Amino acid sequence: MKHTMKAIAALLVAALTGSAHAAETKPLKVGYNNWVGFIAFFVAQDKGYFKQAGLDVQPKVFSAPGEGLVPLISGDLDIHLSTVDAAILRSANAPGSLKVVALVDTSAGADAVLGGPAVKTPADLKGRKIAVTLGECNEVLLQKALQAGGLTEKDVTLVNMDPDAAGTALKAGNVDAAVTWEPWISQLVGAGNANAVFTSKQAPNVLTDCVVISAQGEKAKKAEIAAFLAAMNKATEFVKAHPDEAAAIAGKALEVPAEDIKGMLGKVTLYDLAASSAQMKGEAAKSADELLIFFKNKGSVDKDATVAGLLAPDFAK
Results as ranks from 00 to 15, higher is better:
Ile185Gln: 08
Leu16Cys: 13
His242Ile: 11
Asp46Cys: 08
Gly251Leu: 06
Phe50Glu: 00
Pro117Lys: 15
Ala110Leu: 05
Glu136Val: 14
Asp124Leu: 07
Ser107Met: 00
Asn174Glu: 14
Ala191Lys: 02
Leu12Tyr: 12
Lys129Ile: 09
Ala223Leu: 03
Asn33Asp: 09
Val43Leu: 02
Arg128Asn: 11
Ala166Gly: 13
Thr152Leu: 06
Gly54Val: 06
Gly115Gln: 07
Gly116Ser: 13
Asp46Leu: 02
Pro257Met: 07
Asp314Val: 10
Lys2Phe: 12
Ala15Val: 15
Thr269Ala: 08
Glu218Pro: 00
Lys303Ala: 15
Lys60Gly: 06
Asn138Val: 01
Ile261Leu: 01
Ala86Thr: 15
Lys144Ala: 15
Val36Pro: 05
Gln147Cys: 04
Ile213His: 01
Gln202Arg: 08
Asn34Ile: 05
Asp176Gly: 15
Gly282Gln: 06
Val301Tyr: 03
Leu72Asn: 05
Thr180Asn: 06
Thr4Cys: 08
Met232Trp: 09
Asp155Arg: 09
Pro163Tyr: 10
Gly75Gln: 04
Glu67Phe: 13
Ala274Tyr: 02
Lys99Phe: 00
Glu136Asn: 14
Asp46Arg: 14
Ala86Pro: 07
Gly150Met: 01
Gln147Leu: 10
Met161Lys: 15
Leu89Asp: 13
Lys296Gln: 02
Val101Asn: 07
Gly68Ile: 12
Ile213Pro: 02
Ala165Glu: 06
Lys252Trp: 02
Asn34Asp: 09
